[in-house]
Amino acid sequence: MARNVMVVNLERCIGCQACTVACKTENKVGIGRWRTMVRVMEKGRYPNAKRYFFPTLCNQCGNCEKASKRNGGAMFSRRPDGIVAFDQAKAKKDADGVYERAAVEACPVEAISWDKVSGLPDKCDFCAHRVDAGLMPACVQTCIGKARVFGDLDDPNSEVSQLLAKHGVQTAKPKEKCPGVFYLGLDQMFADNLEGFKEITGADVLSGKVKMQQA
């Protein structure tokens, strides 16, 4: 059985946002919300200032599936290949009349957003429709730095398996789950910057509104 995962090699990410935009056109994601984006962080004092790029997306942890089921919903479900897929047609309203609120709030990284036009939840599913057609997810397909790699972790010869085998990696939250996204180079970034690391939203930093950690 396949287990599809993404490996993000931060050394190769240039923060170009090609993935961010490709995801939006592929999945018709409107403005004001994202399935994936590259966050940008800065640290250090002039002239030793550094900038880091960190692509974020749903980690396929499955918290949403459980929360949805507890509320009698069936919108989210883990596929045999590990992708936490969803079917908006199966979305149920919670007690307060909001679609799948419990599932959305169960997400530890706020990766699920509401489509402002339909009012339905939406998240990254590794472009499951593309994967089923033998195509890479849209963000991987367009990745200029070749930072995003996608493939089958059950195949020891796949590029993702090879990368994970050769390098130390880290995962985003939650670590206790069976995650679908691995980061290469995250530890170096944190080794440099863990103390006083200041998080900034991508939109803020990209539009020039970047704050430094005043050490």
Partner: peptide, 12 residues
């Protein structure tokens, strides 16, 4: 951010 989950994979 959690610890490496895939690092235990053996190199082929």
């Amino acid at each position: 951010i959690g610890a490496a989950a895939g690092a235990a994979l053996a190199a082929t």
